[in-house]
């Protein structure tokens, strides 16, 4: 395959990855890495570097739209970014030193987990829970717009959420993904932040988390301009289309198909990792 054909095909694949990533809320990274490694035979180090760049593009593009809607809680985001950025630096450092077969297997396991999370329904936090005093002191409690007027919410279990965000950062730096699945777990389940606020705030944080490891990837030669160009542009276009569709549909069937596809990719990556073919 020559470079022009390769560029067109990876660009088209990345449009699809960005579109699906935005619709399901999992981000494009979990699709881009298997696409590049399994379909296009790209070395996982290039794939991870490329995916991380695409993740910054899609999350910043979407965040620009979301911030204006008033769901994003910038205080929660800034505070938790300390954890995700520390994790991302550690994760990117790990990515450079551990064998690629191990990264492939870890990626497969993370994909299986993402497939499982994408089938879960968002939890509606019970009313009347006592807020975390730390959240109160840090001014994290907020409100978001609903058709019937602004709705207040309180933030819970800040230390536990912070710790899990550190882990999310490690996976982001190690695998070149946004770790949306883990971030939503920390913010929805543990900190009991309403779904719309946690999804948009998590997306808001992904760019900063990824920027932390991108510096390390760049210095280690993981970011190839020729390969990253079509993937970044494709994923950006796909995610902007996805965000537009998301406002109008409830992609339930798509989620089911997506989680099955992700699970199959996961199994293939685990097998390849163990057989040493990556």
């Amino acid at each position: 395959m020559n470079i022009t054909e390769f560029t067109i095909l990876t660009a088209l694949g990345s449009v699809a990855a960005g579109f699906i990533g935005a619709l399901t809320g999992l981000g494009g990274g979990v699709v881009i890495v298997p696409l590049l490694t399994l379909v296009f035979g790209v070395d996982i180090r290039y794939a991870v570097g490329t995916s991380l760049i695409a993740v910054i593009a899609t999350s910043s593009g979407a965040a620009a739209a979301y911030v204006k809607e008033g769901y994003t809680n910038m205080r929660i985001g800034m505070f938790l970014e300390i954890a995700t950025v520390l994790g991302a630096l550690f994760g990117a450092w790990l990515a450079v030193i551990i064998p690629t077969s191990a990264i492939t297997v870890i990626f497969g396991v993370f994909l299986l987990y993402s497939a499982y999370v994408s089938r879960q329904r968002p939890i509606v936090p019970p009313a009347g829970l006592k807020p975390d005093p730390l959240a109160e002191r840090l001014g994290m409690n907020g409100s978001y717009p609903e058709p019937e007027g602004p709705r207040n919410y309180n933030v819970h279990s800040v230390p536990a959420g912070f710790s899990l965000m550190w882990v999310a950062g490690i996976f982001s730096g190690l695998l070149g993904i946004g770790s949306g699945a883990l971030k939503v777990l920390a913010m929805d389940r543990i900190m009991k932040i309403p779904f719309k606020v946690s999804t948009t705030t998590s997306n808001f944080m992904i760019g900063v988390t990824a920027a932390a490891s991108a510096g390390i990837y760049l210095k280690n030669g993981y970011i190839d301009p020729g390969l990253t160009m079509p993937v970044m542009l494709g994923a950006l276009i796909g995610s902007l289309l996805g965000v537009r569709v998301l406002f109008n549909t409830k992609p339930k069937i798509l989620r089911i198909i997506f989680s099955i596809v992700i699970a199959l990719l996961a199994v293939e990556m685990i097998i390849k990792g163990f057989s040493g073919k990556m």
Partner: peptide, 13 residues
Amino acid sequence: GRMIADYSIFRGE
């Protein structure tokens, strides 16, 4: 554009 695309081996930049 007409050269062969090959990213299967990591060479670093």
